[in-house]
Design a protein around this nucleic acid. Structure first.
Length: 612
DNA sequence: TTAGGGTTAG
């Protein structure tokens, strides 16, 4: 192909080229006759389409002015649309290939890009059709296409098809194997992913990153961190992508010390802080309850996008700093960053945690009116929570009844929690029944319903709910608290005595209990508490997981270091009360991240002000 | 002249 010459001007087009420049170059090419050559039309279309998604339509106009678009130009348009917000448009150009007067036939590039377009759309039917096309056209043995099909089926959640394609590859290379590692992890079989990873004859940094992120994404954070340490021992080059998975694992665990270490590692090794890595750092500190550090990182970032802003907003909301969340949201809009649906979840939660009902409603309305975002189920969930927490129970119910989609259990759960808080028996019973219609085995709904009956001294119904729970075999997810001491992560399960220092923990807890009683604390062993759960009875031998963690924290951490705990469930009322008292008696800050949010206990108070 | 694997917020 001696004719193939790269046009020097086209070769200069990149993401930094402005639209004005693109038009000027186009005009010049029309005048000087460059575009009379189909070969250069193809190059120009490809360069414009790939330089920026904003120019896709303009690239199409250039293509349309060409009498005979080449297969290369059409393939380039399919390729460019794959990762655009409208991957389905790839198929318009595929149809143009099929209907072309030039009698084009789709080639290996065409089908490869179509597979990628389907991965972007995530549509099963189209994906299956494209797979059929690759077979019909004889490209199903092409290694690029095979790898693409594995990723496609992983995206569609079809592990069996991933295996079928992978098994059909006669000698999978390391790219194909890495795609399969990711596919298995995404489909939930992280064990098989690890087996494949171990069997890889050569592992490059991408393969390592794939396995580490596989663990991080399924919540196997400790395994992610262990594998990262192995990666270092093996001397594999660590990059920004590796660190994103590592930080995300630390954030999930709430492992602040390990997260700080990873941050220092990034700086020490001069790993470039990309916008994604920066966002993950902000998220790490936010999810470890250190918003000061999160914002120090945030303001220091060279580049921020809507993900970065949303991470910070979510951090403020989770940490109960609603006003700060709203201040930052104003700043975000002033800076010209357009919020999206996820951003609004954080903003609405920010309003909810501080009871700003009118402001929350205004933001909710602005979604559609100002930003053209149609509120989804989660947004209605936040709105219900906003009204319910503030005590406007009837308004909350009205929203549930009028919302344009079927409410999910979480919506009723908000109303149920608020009904208990505001002692509204009638709504509480309704909400718990609705919740149990949707999730028949939801332990929390039974517990709250029994609490609501107990609050009104309706012991017959309390007993009825208990019976019902027993007969349905509803069991509580075991409570688990995680804390980090000297960079080591310790796990505590309810009633579990397996910790190597359990005897000491028990002794420390006895001492704490004594000091609590001297300070006027009386363990709540009333029937209400009894009915919540057998395990919640005050019992030194059967500690709630966060009490064991607090005791361990007090005995192992320096006095001025806050006790940081991450819990898998919501904090129970008794533990909340106890934590507040300990923070005063021992002059110790205790920071608990529960399933929903943070509790910063200090001087006998909690940042949640009793709302959780 | 075009292609396949790893990465951020709810």
């Amino acid at each position: 192909m001696s004719r193939i010459v790269k046009h020097p001007v086209i070769a200069l087009l990149d993401a930094g080229t402005t639209f004005k420049e693109v038009r000027q170059i186009h005009a010049k090419f029309v005048i000087d006759g460059t575009l009379n050559d189909d070969h250069f039309v193809g190059q120009f279309v490809k360069a414009v389409a790939l330089s920026d998604q904003k120019y896709l339509d303009y690239a199409e106009q250039i293509l349309d002015r060409s009498d005979k678009p080449t297969l290369f130009a059409l393939n380039s348009m399919i390729r460019a649309h794959c990762k655009s917000p409208v991957p389905e448009k790839s198929f318009d150009f595929y149809r143009r290939i099929l209907c072309s007067r030039n009698d084009f036939k789709p080639d290996n590039y065409t089908v490869n890009f179509l597979v990628q377009a389907c991965t972007g759309i995530g549509m099963r039917e189209t994906g299956l059709q494209v797979h059929g096309t690759t077979i019909r056209r004889g490209f199903d043995n092409d290694p690029h296409v095979q790898t693409g099909l594995i990723s496609l089926y992983a995206e569609l959640g079809c592990p069996d098809s991933c295996h079928k394609v992978f098994d059909s590859v006669s000698s999978p290379d390391f790219v194909c194997r890495t795609a399969m590692v990711t596919a298995c992890a995404r489909c939930g079989d992280v064990g098989f992913a690890r087996k494949l990873f171990e069997e890889m004859p050569e592992k490059d940094p991408i393969a390592w990153n794939a396995m580490i992120s596989g663990y991080a994404q399924v919540g196997e954070s400790r395994k992610a961190l262990d594998l990262f340490h192995l990666m270092q021992l093996e001397g594999v080059k660590v990059n920004a992508v590796s660190m994103i998975s590592v930080l995300s694992a630390c954030a999930q665990l709430g492992a602040l010390d390990q997260g700080r270490w990873a941050h220092a590692y990034i700086e020490r090794n001069k790993i470039k802080i990309t916008v994604r890595l920066g966002t993950t750092l902000v998220d790490l500190y936010a999810k470890c309850g250190d918003m000061n550090k999160a914002m120090e990182v945030f303001w220091g970032l060279e580049e921020k996008n809507v993900y970065t802003w949303s991470s910070a907003l979510n951090g403020f909301a989770m940490n109960g700093l609603g006003e700060k969340c709203l201040e930052l949201f104003s700043r975000m809009k002033q800076d010209g960053v357009t919020p999206n649906a996820v951003t609004f979840v954080s903003v609405l939660r920010g309003c909810s945690v501080v009871g700003l009902v009118d402001e929350g409603q205004r933001h909710f309305d602005s979604m559609r009116n100002e930003f053209g975002i149609e509120p989804q189920l989660d947004h209605y969930g936040c709105l219900v929570d906003l009204y319910a927490r503030a005590g406007h129970l009837k308004d909350a119910l009205g929203i549930i009844q009028r919302m344009p989609m079927k409410p999910h259990a979480a919506v009723w759960s908000s109303l149920l929690h608020a009904s208990r808080m505001y002692k509204n028996l009638e709504l509480g019973v309704l909400a718990s029944k609705k919740m149990l219609e949707l999730e028949t085995r939801n332990h929390g709904a039974y517990v709250l319903l029994s609490n609501i009956y107990a609050d009104s001294d309706d012991w017959d119904n309390v007993s009825h709910v208990r019976q019902s729970m027993k007969s349905k075999g509803v069991k509580k997810e075991p409570g688990c608290s995680v804390m980090e001491v000297n960079g080591e992560v310790h796990e505590f399960f309810v009633g579990d005595k397996s910790h190597p220092r359990y005897t000491e923990i028990e002794a420390v807890w006895k001492d704490i209990s004594m000091r609590l009683r001297l300070a006027g604390y009386k363990a709540d062993t009333s029937p209400v508490m009894f009915d919540i759960d057998e395990e919640e009875k005050e019992d030194a031998l059967c500690l709630h997981s966060e009490k064991a963690a607090i005791a361990f924290g007090i005995m192992s951490l320096k006095e001025d270091v806050p006790v940081r705990i991450v819990k898998n469930l919501r904090v129970c009322g008794d533990c909340h009360q106890v934590s507040m008292m300990i923070s005063k008696i021992f002059d110790r800050e205790i920071i608990v991240r529960d399933r929903n949010r943070f509790h910063h206990f200090k001087d006998g108070h909690c940042s949640c002000n009793g709302f959780w």
